[in-house]
């Protein structure tokens, strides 16, 4: 199960002369949890935007399971089997928790006929993050942590194979952090591949099988947690002189 699932080749992006991504090659293996780490401004979220169609690369290609994604709109990228979260929670506040998950499952004119099955599957997904008891609550009435869980449940419920998670643990601590860190390693069993942006290095170490270290839009190191966390040069870049524990 090591066939490349996603391949970025020679991807470049600049904004008004600022080369945010000066040239990026990145490969994701199926059913692996890969973490993108790097200091602020390294271009991590820009890479998510480039993969998911929210931005178009100036140059280079993005290939997902052998199909080119370059130039596709975000909704068409989704239809290829990939879904993302955002740094902000971005729940649909005016509809219920259950409806939030349904939105990611229901596509096309025929979907109304499968409402019962979709609701059942959505409830099972909500149970994974402990929100099944609040299925009929409006999403805006959830706490911040619950909204983070919901944005995770929404992508899990979508049946997409590749999940791009942008800081799923930011703002979480204690038990709410455990919910997310406990769930992500289990996604492999659910046939999912995960690319995660994460600032909490303890989280990265515990859940990522492979880590890609970025600086100024370039991959400067790739490896397992043990390999990368031992390197003082990376710690210097990440913390500006500190040490990675």
């Amino acid at each position: 199960m090591t066939s490349p699932m996603l391949e970025l080749t020679g991807v470049k992006k600049s904004f008004g002369g600022n080369h945010v991504i000066p040239g990026l090659d990145l490969t994701l293996k199926a059913h692996e949890v890969t973490a993108l780490i790097g200091p602020n401004g390294a271009g991590k979220t820009t890479i998510f935007n480039l993969i998911t169609g929210f931005l178009k690369p100036d140059e280079g290609t993005v290939v997902y399971k052998g199909q080119g994604l370059t130039g596709l709109t975000p909704e068409n990228v989704f239809r290829k089997g990939m879904v993302r979260t955002f740094q902000e929670v971005r729940v649909f506040g005016g509809i219920t928790v259950l409806e939030n998950v349904l939105v990611g499952r229901e596509h096309g004119f025929g979907s109304w006929r499968k409402t019962k099955e979709n609701k059942q599957a959505a409830m099972e997904t909500l149970a994974l993050v402990g929100l099944d008891g609040k299925a009929h609550t409006e999403a805006r009435d959830l706490s911040y942590a619950e909204q983070k869980f919901l944005s995770l449940a929404r992508v899990l419920g979508s049946d997409a194979e590749l999940l791009l998670l942008d800081e799923p643990t930011s703002g979480l601590d204690g038990r709410s952090l455990d919910v997310v860190t406990g769930l992500i390693p289990r996604l492999k069993e659910m046939n999912r591949t995960v690319l995660i942006i994460e600032h909490n290095l303890d989280v990265v170490r515990s859940i990522a099988e492979r880590i890609v270290f970025l600086e100024s839009g370039r991959v400067i190191a790739t490896g397992t947690g043990d390999e990368l966390f031992a390197r003082q040069d990376l710690a210097d870049i990440y913390f500006g002189g500190g040490t990675v524990q």
Binding site: F54, E75, R90, F92, I95, G104
Partner: peptide, 16 residues
Amino acid sequence: QALRDDPLAAQALGKN
């Protein structure tokens, strides 16, 4: 309603 509440998130979930 998803589109009303957050167009970007709706797009990311496959909505046109």
